[in-house]
Write a protein that binds this DNA or RNA. Structure first.
Lengths: 157, 157
DNA sequence: CTCACTATTGATATCAAGTATCAATTAAGA
DNA sequence: TCTTAATTGATACTTGATATCAATAGTGAG
């Protein structure tokens, strides 16, 4: 079964910054290039470690610009540093693997229908919503099957 | 229109701690009593300020025990300190007023149905989900109506 | 191309939330 | 009451993130 996807948009983070009137600089390009190469969600500290020649302040500032531009999603992580992922599709929700932390995006019309039906029941005006689905992703499932068939039970949650 | 509610369970935080084999102490009672009196969501720092005679470490520890016991929900706030609210109903989602921060709980069977239909499409096993609805609550709506008709705009966000 | 001006950078200091430490205290069962 | 282990809280520390500000580097005008 394929992962749930929907209308991926072209990702060009440095352009997203220029569209907001920000200059194209070496430091910003280094940050956006790196983010585009990371397939998973990442933390700010992680980026700082991978870009030792870019100052911490610049990494944090660039991330903030990208979130403001809507090019990055800040994921509502409960513990530890917040994580970010590229917003590849317009309005979407996230799947988060509770074992490896891999983040996926999905869009589902039923979620939007739920919102409309809730509108009648909620005591106030709905201005937005957010949904995360916690999963064990297929590669983690595969790993644990290998481990359990070999008698090795080293899966940590 | 009434707020959405569902089967409120009796809340007794100190008992929730005792059920987990933790002692009933003056400091813990002070913390749980305070939490039970707070109607809204709160932060750890807020509790510390309101309980100057209880050590910070104890406040943080007690909150963690309550979350572990399932008696408190840790809300996934994107910016600033995480907030906590009493888990009054079994499995539920949250409404968060984006103006005043008031947190409500709701349960909706359609959300559960969405999960079941997504199960077929997601690339992995679903192990949990979370949903937050951002609203402007009825009292904030009322305030802004009063202000716009009287010209007084003292609403603070 | 050069100049002038402003945005940007990044080392550093600082802030804020939260945790670890550990000696003193206290709850609770024998 | 006594004993023992749990609990407390002052303090130091860790971590994530922001503020400051002098030095640097884009960019548009001339």
């Amino acid at each position: 079964m394929p992962p749930v996807t929907a209308d991926p948009v072209e990702v060009n983070l440095i352009n997203a910054l220029e569209d907001r009137g920000l200059r194209r600089t070496a430091a910003r390009s280094a940050v956006t290039d790196r983010i585009e190469r990371v397939s998973d969600a990442f933390t700010a500290e992680q980026l700082c470690r991978e870009l030792p020649d870019v100052g911490r302040a610049t990494v944090y500032r660039t991330i903030r610009h990208l979130v403001d531009a809507g090019a990055l999603c800040k994921l509502p992580i409960l513990d530890g540093a917040p994580m970010y992922s590229i917003a590849r599709i317009e309005h979407h929700h996230h799947t988060i693997c509770s074992r490896c932390g891999a983040v996926g995006e999905f869009r589902h019309s039923t979620v939007e229908r739920v919102m409309r039906s809730l509108e009648k029941e909620i005591d106030g005006d709905i201005v937005g919503h957010r949904m995360e689905i916690f999963i064990t992703c297929s590669s983690c499932l595969a790993k644990s099957e290998i481990n359990s068939s070999s008698g090795n039970s080293s899966v940590s949650i």
